[in-house]
Design a protein around this nucleic acid. Structure first.
Length: 227
DNA sequence: CTACTCTCAACCTC
DNA sequence: AGAGGTTGAGAGTA
């Protein structure tokens, strides 16, 4: 059940990263590829540009009702994407802001390396190690069935935990070890079908992390024709 | 309509 | 510091 590293890439180009394929020995439905998509210098520039140009949601879109109390979500969030698309997360429907050049540039690089085109991106900014997100699956109904999600990270390296749905909490029916990754500056994690059917993921708090991290999850959202 | 499942973050213990 | 259990109103589903 441990992730098994893939053989080294046979492609020698400096523009094509080595990729680790995350596949437990037993087929538990985890289908992910992880690798660096941007070199350090380019990632530094993109991070600064994202910090300058991305505008996060404010007001009601940042609040969450949990166990009888209202909380501000412990991170900043915003969506960008094609016009007319909508996306619902925890009962809140987001309208995407129109694409800006830095996001198009990242989206195009992902397309070049994976062959996948995305029409929507959810951006989460974690200002330090106290910002986090709880266990969840990206299984929203608006997503194109079986479409992959491309998760790109900039800034502070953070731990990222996958946990199998049958091994959660005290009602767990199986003992499957969580899979822990470090999502590095400039990295790409491709989460492919059926990962999000069986595996929850979270970004836990890490008190010793003091720097911000920006994560972009590119998605394929169904258009009206597909709904 | 009913009744059942799932979700989110903070607080607490260890 | 981190892992895991406990708290419920609202949304969705069969």
């Amino acid at each position: 059940e441990q992730p098994s590293p893939s053989p080294p890439s046979t492609c020698g180009s400096t523009h094509i990263p080595d990729v680790t394929h995350l596949r437990p020995g037993e087929d538990l439905g985890l289908r992910c590829d992880y690798g660096l998509l941007f070199g350090a210098a380019e990632a530094d520039g993109l991070f600064r540009q994202l910090e300058d140009e991305v505008e996060y949601f404010e007001g009601e879109l940042t609040k969450l009702h949990v166990f009888g109390k209202w909380h501000s979500i412990p991170r900043k969030q915003v969506t960008y994407g094609d016009p007319e698309l909508t996306y619902t997360y925890s009962g809140v429907t987001f309208s995407p802001k129109p694409w800006i050049p830095v996001l198009n540039r990242i989206r195009d690089r992902i397309a070049l390396h994976t062959g996948h085109t995305f029409n929507f991106v959810l951006i989460n900014r974690y200002k330090d190690g106290c910002d986090h997100i709880g266990e969840h699956r990206d299984d929203e109904r608006e997503l194109v069935p079986r479409s992959p999600i491309a998760s790109v990270s900039f800034g502070a390296c953070r731990d990222f935990i996958f946990r199998h749905c049958d091994s959660r909490g005290k009602n767990a029916t199986r003992h499957i070890k969580p899979i822990k990754l470090q999502l590095a500056h400039g990295s790409l994690l491709m989460m492919k079908y059926p990962t999000n059917v069986y595996w929850y993921h979270s970004l836990p708090t890490r008190k010793r992390v003091l720097a911000p991290r920006i994560n972009l999850t590119f998605r394929k959202v169904m258009t009206l024709a597909g709904k």
